[in-house]
Design a protein around this nucleic acid. Structure first.
Lengths: 335, 335
DNA sequence: CTGAAAGCGCTTACAG
DNA sequence: CTGAAAGCGCTTACAG
């Protein structure tokens, strides 16, 4: 690999001059600039970002803290958005190999050691100590779905509450009055906000809230299936079920059909996420579409703004969502 | 951030000595070692990998060339394996933001500029020029599913041919004789090998090969669906269909049911991939399980071996697969 | 056993 | 407009 010294020698100038050409300094004569560029071309020279980073105390690298499995469809789409935003930014993505099981491991030290310019965090609870340190250390950070922010840390999430309220209203408009909710595990902001949305939706529709129609599971197919089983066992079965994920909705549908009922004729079901399969499988799942791709893109765009402008105020963003109506919701069967 | 100089000053020794402690050199007295370690502790010092990398011409970083969408389920699982293997290796993963649309872009230069120690490639055709350069440049590389290898480049893939042959034999054992194959787009090694496997399977089962029963699509739900429609339009409908992906199998099943036929009573269907949904959805899909996770792990393990031992001969690996029998295959309806 | 010095590949005041 | 020198945070012969 040719270094800046090789280029300097080839062009017959100093390395300082080569550096100036590389960095588009104006105080270089056209003649010299040309000589240098020819040498660069000739030697197929490419500046070493690592060396440059050492002196600039930058790395043109964005770290990602992601312990959630890559197989999680939300993660996949998020990464797709992140990738898109990164593509022409000059930054590369580094997945930090974290070791939270090792008590001596420090995520911040890791970031500093790698010189990452900023970090995107998804799927860590706000109780994760490393995460807290991140905001006090004032390393540029974008939190996705983790309700944390600070002087150098922004927060972006979906309008969870509003989304679920929309689903409830949709069922209400179809004549449903017995509307159940299969929540995800409560605790994380995302789950709590969605539950709020369920209650708010009912309130707006003048339907009393009852915990009888509230089930909690882990967002999975099996979880949704079991939750639906319990709901169907009620003497007063719900006619509509709102779910906190597409997977739990798929599980619920499976269970409903196992009980000899039909979706949507007997029971309507609404999902959450609008994953690929919601569209592809039949019947198409009525569900909330989160702009995950957009969340991924924005998290990077804002992160880069923060990185490149120390005075930039980190954003707190609630990304809108929308209800995609397909074939799993229909007018209520009986009043 | 404390630097090695701060530690040296704090401990009252030279930076050279601190460096020796850091790198476990034996020629340091216990007393000095202790002083240094205390200073490190005190200052919460963490060596800067980037600076170290500059002198060692290493980065403890593995680059990944991945232009296939993250939403591709194969990619997700692959990354999960890669992540697992990386977790305690001391290496971090860098996704290089490639720009193949830019004619001046060079993937190798990018790798060199970032100082990555090795790279994992998935989803690029062997005709990609950047890829070819990679093997001639002798940068440690593991190719996944791309049939390329060299002095410093290994290749790992699933036993594609054998896998499809297994599916054919499975159907044959169930009494099927009219066995169709819905292939993925031909050209890439993976698709070609699977087609070879179909023909080999038929041969072993003494069933004549006919292009009438061969359909080609793009691995998608829609593609599988359309391919199945054409097969069902034949006067001599197949009773068993082998597919090159789970998604095309799902599409085929959907089409079969739309024709008023039942799976598996009327037509048996076999998928390929054993994605999450193959297990979760009902009826469970009989399919080929690829050890994608294992492929991800091995690609990293071998890559690191290659990186850390210049004499290591890059491996060419065919990872075994296995048939997972669920509910979409059954004895043939009629002889 | 310890440390001064050179060097990895860059950038940036600063002097000329 | 150009270049010598110092420095980013490390490592590694080498001398003592």
């Amino acid at each position: 690999m040719a270094s800046i010294h090789d280029v300097a020698k080839e062009a017959g100038v100093s390395v300082a001059t080569v550096s100036k050409v590389l960095n588009d300094y104006p105080d270089v004569s056209d003649k010299t600039r040309k000589k240098v560029n020819i040498a660069i071309e000739l030697l197929k020279y490419q500046p070493n970002v690592v060396a440059r980073g050492l002196v600039k105390r930058r790395s043109w690298t964005v770290g990602v803290l992601l312990t959630v499995p890559f197989t999680n469809p939300f993660v996949s789409e998020l990464l797709e958005g992140i990738k898109t935003a990164l593509e022409n930014s000059g930054y590369d993505l580094v997945r930090l190999s974290t070791r939270f099981d090792d008590p001596t491991y420090s995520f911040i030290k890791h970031c500093r050691s790698r010189n990452v310019d900023g970090v995107v965090v998804f799927g860590e609870g706000r109780d994760n100590k490393s995460i807290q340190e991140l905001v006090t250390a004032e390393i540029p950070t974008m939190f996705i779905d983790t309700d944390l922010f600070g002087k150098r840390a922004g927060y972006i999430t979906t309008d969870n509450a509003n989304a679920i309220a929309m689903s409830v209203k949709h069922l209400h408009e179809l004549g449903h009055r017995k509307i159940a909710y299969i929540s995800g595990t409560l605790g994380p902001a995302v789950a709590n906000l969605r539950l709020d949305g369920y209650r708010e939706g009912l309130r707006v529709c003048d339907i009393p809230y009852s915990t009888v129609y509230l089930e909690v599971c882990d967002y999975s197919f099996d979880g949704g299936s079991k939750a639906a089983r319990r709901l169907l066992a009620l003497k007063d079965q719900p006619t509509g079920i709102v779910c906190a994920s597409d997977m739990s909705a798929f599980g619920a549908i499976h269970e409903i059909e196992k009980h000899g009922l039909r979706v949507p004729e007997d029971v309507s079901v609404v999902g959450f996420d609008n994953t690929y399969y919601a569209e592809v499988f039949k019947p198409g799942l009525t569900t909330i579409n989160q702009n995950i791709h957009s969340i991924g893109i924005k998290s990077i765009e804002y992160l880069i703004l923060m990185i490149e402008n120390p005075a930039y105020t980190p954003p707190v963003i609630t990304e809108p969502s929308n209800l995609v109506i397909r074939q799993t919701t229909a007018p209520a069967n009986n009043g």
